[in-house]
Simulated scan of single mutants.
Amino acid sequence: MSANSRLTIAAHALAWIGLYERQGYEVATSEQLASSANTNPVVIRRLLGELRRAGLVESRRGAGAGWSMARELNAITLLDVYEAVEQGPLFALHRATPDQSCAIGCNIQPVMQDIYAGIEKTLRHELSRITMEDVLRDILATPR
C-alpha cells in the first residue's frame, strides 16, 4: 500500500504560490510548481483545479496565464486543503462483507468504523488549527 501524497502536494503548491506572490510575482505556472514538487504538471493542474473549486486559488488564462492565491495564507487551514483534495473517508472497510458467522467477521466493521470515526475527528481538529501561513513560516525557518 502506498501513502497518499495529495494533501502534501497541494500544501506545497499553496506555500509556493504564496511565497512567489510575496516576492512580487502575480501568477505561478503549473510547470514552475511541478518543478518544485518534482512531479508532472498534469498532477499539479488537477490539484489546482480542486483548490480553485474550493475557492483557495484562482486561475488566469491567456497572456500571463497562471495561478494565484484567492485567499491569504493565514485564512487557509490545512483542513480547507484536505477537504478540497481528499475524497472519501480516511480509512476503508473490507471490500466484501466479512463472514457474519465468524466471531470476528460479524463485528469487525462496526468496531473499526467507530475507531476510524474518532481518528478522523482528531485529524480534522488538528488540521483546522494549522494555517498555510504556519506551514510557510515553518518551511522558511527550517535550515536547508
Rank of each mutant, 00 (worst) to 15 (best):
E31H: 12
A103C: 02
G62C: 03
M1K: 06
T29F: 07
Y20F: 14
E86P: 01
S128T: 08
Y25M: 10
A37R: 04
T122A: 06
N107I: 11
G64W: 13
M69E: 01
S5A: 10
T97K: 13
Y25L: 09
I130P: 00
S68A: 11
S30M: 07
N4K: 12
S2I: 13
Y116H: 15
M1N: 08
V42H: 15
R137M: 00
T122C: 02
T122F: 03
P110H: 10
G66T: 03
E126I: 09
R129T: 13
I44G: 10
L51P: 08
E50I: 02
L73F: 11
I119M: 14
A75P: 00
A11Q: 02
Q100M: 11
S128D: 11
E21L: 02
T131D: 09
I9T: 14
D80I: 06
H125W: 11
A28M: 13
I115L: 14
R129L: 12
R22W: 07
I130Y: 01
A84R: 03
S101M: 09
A28F: 10
L47K: 04
Q32N: 12
L7S: 05
D114Y: 09
W16E: 04
A37K: 03
R95W: 11
I108K: 05
A3Y: 07
C102L: 05
K121M: 07
K121C: 04
R124N: 08
A3V: 05
S30E: 12
I104F: 14
G62K: 05
E86C: 12
I139H: 00
Q87I: 01
C106A: 13
T39G: 03
L90N: 05
L51W: 08
E83I: 01
G66W: 03
I115Y: 15
A34G: 14
P98K: 10
T97D: 09
L19I: 01
E86S: 11
I115W: 12
R6H: 11
A96M: 08
R52F: 01
Y116F: 15
L140D: 00
W67I: 08
S101Y: 05
G18A: 11
G49R: 10
D138N: 06
T8E: 05
P110D: 10
N107A: 13
L136P: 01
I9L: 07
T122K: 06
L140T: 05
E120H: 05
E26K: 12
Q32Y: 09
R124P: 03
R45W: 04
R61A: 13
R137I: 00
A13M: 06
L78D: 04
L48R: 01
A141N: 03
L127Y: 14
N38R: 09
E21F: 02
P98C: 11
